[in-house]
Amino acid sequence: MLINQSVIADIKTIITHSREQVIRAVDHQRTLMYWHIGKRIFEEEQEGKDRADYGTYLTKYVAEELEPEFGSGFSKRQIELFRQFFRVFPIANSLRSQLSWTQYKLLIRIDNQCKREFYVAETIKNNWTSRQLERQVYSSLYERLLLSNDKESVLAVAKEEKLPSDPREIIKDPMVLEFLGLQREASYYEKELETAIITHLQSFLLELGNGFTFAARQKRIHIDGDDFFIDLVCYNRLLNCSVIIEIKTGKLTHQDLGQLQMYVNYYDRVEKLPRENATVGILLCAGKNGSIVKFTLPEGQKQIIASEYQTCLPTEKQLLDEINKEVQNFEKKKEIKQ
């Protein structure tokens, strides 16, 4: 008797999906339990707030009563974490079932509400694992997007309240490629960097931003007898356009920008479909001179983006210093116009 073999694959999919739903539901109930414990401790703490060190004594006492019976998950450190959880997320209905307790523990450490809301929205939208969320927090994704955008725009795009109207709203500068395992001091050719990116393609697409899919490597284009090869071609479903990426391991030059502009023009005139938006080009370089970018490209253009790459995680201070520079430059431009 012939049996349609797809039935086994379908049943396996059902089983896997159901197991994932059960695990997610159990984890969410655990998260709610921790929230309610935190709420009860906070309420009791408020009752005795006129007594010195009552909060410290209370968490210690609760842990001593619970840990022997329920295990190390109810140590003093964990009890304090439950209290902090309630204080950071005081509304039970705002807790999202898509987020695990491990992810909430990461989010609790973020003291800026807008920044925290951004990571909540991005985690849910992109179905990030705890490891992926941790990597994005520690690589300062939020701060890097702020370098070229305002806070309201970054948060609105993350929450899907608006579609990105400018590629800079989702493309970061700098890009952090620490997952490639390249040494900062080492000299390497563009081909090696490209190969490392392809090897770690999933991580690279995550670093690129929302909505990116890989399309081609060393894409050959033929122009009147001459052949050219584009390093990487991606597509972004949010921007609805092709994204060309050229890799330069040296300092950016105006010739590099001119070459990328030619590739973008070719794609716009030959490859682009009528329903698609204008092609975007990213020049991924080891270092750039902002003035060269400014005077090489037309004023107000949005198609060409020069983004530095870093092979190790930047500190938050480094990124905040860059943001402050951008704010100061913006204020100066406003003063000149006035």
Rank of each mutant, 00 (worst) to 15 (best):
R220L: 10
L208P: 06
L177V: 06
L155D: 05
K172A: 05
P164I: 11
I197L: 11
L180Y: 03
L205E: 12
E161K: 10
L205N: 01
E207V: 05
A215F: 06
S165G: 13
S203G: 08
L163N: 11
Y189M: 12
R184D: 13
L206V: 01
T199K: 15
E161F: 08
F204Y: 15
V157N: 03
H200T: 02
F204D: 05
A196P: 07
V233E: 01
D224M: 08
R217E: 11
L193F: 03
A158K: 04
A216Q: 10
L208C: 10
K191M: 12
L177T: 06
K159A: 12
D224R: 09
Q183D: 11
D166S: 09
K159P: 04
F179D: 10
L206E: 02
H200M: 07
E207W: 03
S187T: 15
D173F: 02
A156N: 10
R168M: 14
D224W: 04
K162D: 12
E192N: 11
E194Y: 00
H200A: 10
S203V: 02
V157W: 03
K162I: 15
D227C: 04
E185M: 09
I198F: 15
V176T: 13
V233H: 00
G211H: 02
Q218L: 04
P167R: 07
G181L: 12
P167W: 13
G211F: 00
L163C: 04
E192T: 14
T195W: 00
Q202C: 03
R184F: 08
L182K: 12
L193T: 02
A156R: 12
D226R: 07
N210D: 13
G209E: 14
K162V: 15
Q218C: 03
S187E: 14
V233D: 00
A216F: 14
D224P: 01
G211N: 04
A196V: 06
E192L: 06
S187G: 06
Y188F: 15
I221G: 03
T199Y: 13
E160L: 09
P174S: 07
L206A: 04
T199D: 15
F179S: 10
A158Q: 05
G225E: 05
L182D: 02
T195Q: 11
S203C: 10
R184Y: 04
D166W: 04
Q218S: 13
K162P: 05
L180C: 13
T213K: 02
V157L: 03
F229H: 08
K172Y: 00
Q218R: 13
E207L: 01
V233S: 01
I170P: 03
H200R: 12
T213I: 13
S187Y: 09
Y188N: 00
F179H: 11
E161Y: 08
D173P: 00
I197A: 01
T199E: 15
F229T: 03
L180D: 03
L180E: 01
S187K: 14
R220A: 09
F229L: 10
A216W: 09
L180K: 02
L182P: 04
